[in-house]
Design a protein around this nucleic acid. Structure first.
Lengths: 158, 158
DNA sequence: CCAATTTAGTTTCCATGGAAACTTTATCCG
DNA sequence: CGGATAAAGTTTCCATGGAAACTAAATTGG
């Protein structure tokens, strides 16, 4: 049986070692795996919050942009309108944010934190910073900053 | 109406420009946005294929690891067993791969390409390489290679 | 100023993918 | 050997998120 040359030691073919081959250069694949890791970090750190990643992110953005229209928040997070409606519903039900009808445009809705939401965000600020540490994983500070810079450039967020 | 100045200068608050703030340093957020871009690249390039990213990836791995057990493929792609069953079902229905009962372990299933699958993979090899180009997007060769290296390290794929 | 178009958000429906329970087979250990 | 446990896949059910159709309101062109 021909030795299945893996990258490091010339492994004999066992029935578990899979040759990833070109996938190791596939950005789509690597991004998906990396996102799984990042989700793990999120839940390790913030599972006690009762918020999922999307909800947490939206809450944070409302904190930083009080009174912004729902659609503007959704676009900046690349969340589709249909999804945003449901996400905001959950945050409203949780008592963290509120919808305010726009005086100038009666179709539009402005989002802001409730007093409970303010309290919640203030209390969780440290968790958020801890999350950034946890997200770094096994990367050095410099590697982490390279990685975020490259991802921003790739995504067109510069 | 005030001119809506672009992203850079210290903007007065208009009702569309959202302050991303700390999210710009959140790896989870950046990975999600980057993955959306990568999906766009995939569909721009390979939409005519009739395969979704996961199916395409699984097919490629079976091509590179013929006869491997279904579970081993699933683990290496971080696909859960339940999902893998459905994904393989679709590829079998499409006539591209086949399940072969294992002679040593009657619970296990080995996957391999059908002749149609072989033909398909051979014909699409160039598309796969073109996809890698498309995935690079606006990154230079060096940046792309840095990015994939950092993602692999972060994901523990070294 | 009114019809046509566009926009904000919601609703409904569907596809993707995970969790848990289950079936069948293999392994472990007394 | 034979019961307990573990493992490979599958099935069922559920949560997440997108597409399309819809409502209501704003804008635009004639």
């Amino acid at each position: 049986m021909p030795a299945k040359t893996a990258k490091k030691p010339p492994l004999p073919a066992d029935d578990e070692t899979v040759e990833i081959a070109e996938l190791g250069e596939s950005l789509g694949f690597l991004l998906r795996i990396a996102q799984l890791r990042a989700f793990e970090a999120f839940f390790d750190e913030l599972s006690a919050l009762g918020l999922r990643p999307g909800e947490f992110t939206a809450l944070w953005l409302v904190l930083r942009n009080p009174g912004m229209k729902q659609g503007a928040i959704a676009r900046s997070l690349c969340i589709k309108p249909a999804h945003m409606t449901k996400l905001v519903d959950r945050l409203v039900t949780a008592g963290l944010i509120e919808r305010v009808a726009s005086p100038e445009d009666r179709r539009a809705v402005h989002l802001s934190l409730t007093p409970e939401g303010e309290t919640f965000a203030a209390a969780r600020k440290d968790d958020f910073l801890a999350l950034h540490q946890a997200e770094r994983g096994n990367l050095s500070e410099a590697e982490f900053s390279d990685l975020t810079r490259l991802l921003k450039k790739y995504s067109g967020l510069d």
